[in-house]
Amino acid sequence: MRVTRSPPSEEHPVADAVAGHWVDRWAPRRTRPYLRLARIDRPIGWWLLLLPCWWSAALAGLAAGTAPNPLHLVLFLIGAVAMRGAGSTYNDIADRDLDAQVERTRSRPLPSGQVRARHAAAFLGLQTLVGLAVLLQFNADAVLVGIASLLPVAIYPFMKRVMPMPQLVLGLAFAWGALMGWVAVFGRLDAPAWLLYAGTIAWVVGYDTIYAVQDIEDDAIAGIRSSARTFGPRLKPAIGACYAAAAGFVGVAAWRAGAGPVGFLGVAGFAAHLGWQVRRLEAGNGRGALMLFRSNRDAGLILFAGLALDAGLRAWTG
């Protein structure tokens, strides 16, 4: 199939970007395509990458009897923004021809012709260097664990061509932060970190299936595989099962780390929010699916608040 790209232009707001974002209003015009390539106009991506890191840091604080390390939280924030941008840039380079065939993605900087592939590759290298500089601030074990995350990141863009649920591979990559906060404190990976990782993978599969509801028809035409297409009429029960697994694994991780009532209140709030998403989901409502997908930032912050407050109270009374 021959793909026709739009002529280069700096004014191609992406379909699911935040309306009125500062990138579109205040950023210099020449930088806008690169900021969009890094998904700066769609902050939900780095939030979803960041939150498992923060959960893990709070869980480690619970186990260690201390509040989450503020420096670690800041480093995770910077690293999440940089690596979300790098991962998105890499994904767009690999998918630029497929993206041109999907209504929601054809306005992205590469398929629309705003950025050339070689310039995108250079931008990818710059963002990766920022992420590496952040990673090197942690202990040697954390550095090794962080480098290992590159494998699922590297293979994910190609999985949507060959497997019915590429969201599983996305989960392996986006959930990696659930390991990082723990290893940054203890220099090893223990059961609570692995349980949190398992729960986060299930969470990622659930929320990215909701996200994929927007593209079911176009994905079928372009031959792109997704869990939303795979689940079909069983979409809501399947997402519900993913979210139940997420809440269950996270709850057990919190128990193994020694969480108290406040921590479990955060887990309960997280589970309740996920249940609300499943109830509200409508298979044919792409706009509603995007709203529910974005609401996972709030679900994640509820969980972090519970775990972090529990850890802080334990350190204060301790």
Rank of each mutant, 00 (worst) to 15 (best):
P157E: 01
L144N: 08
G199P: 06
A254E: 13
A63G: 05
Y156R: 01
I201K: 11
P192M: 06
G61F: 09
L265Q: 13
R294D: 04
P237G: 11
A67S: 13
P152T: 08
R229G: 00
L75Y: 13
R29P: 02
G266M: 03
V130E: 09
A58P: 00
I210T: 05
F138S: 01
A311L: 08
G113I: 05
V169Q: 10
Q214I: 07
G223E: 07
A245N: 12
M163R: 08
P152H: 08
P157Q: 10
P43E: 11
R104P: 00
A305I: 08
L172C: 14
P111H: 09
Q167R: 13
R256S: 14
I302Y: 03
E282L: 10
D41S: 10
V115G: 00
G232H: 08
Q214Y: 12
A222N: 06
A94T: 04
S9G: 03
R229P: 03
W47C: 07
R287H: 14
W276I: 05
G284S: 14
I302L: 15
P164H: 14
A259M: 09
S226D: 03
T209N: 11
V278Q: 13
Q137D: 13
V3W: 02
G181E: 04
F76N: 12
A175F: 06
P261K: 14
D215Y: 06
N296M: 02
V102C: 00
P109K: 02
L172M: 14
A259K: 03
L168Q: 14
R5T: 12
A247L: 00
G318P: 09
C53W: 03
A38F: 02
S227R: 10
Y243R: 02
N69G: 08
A272G: 11
L172Q: 12
S112A: 14
L150E: 04
L179P: 01
L77Q: 03
T317Q: 15
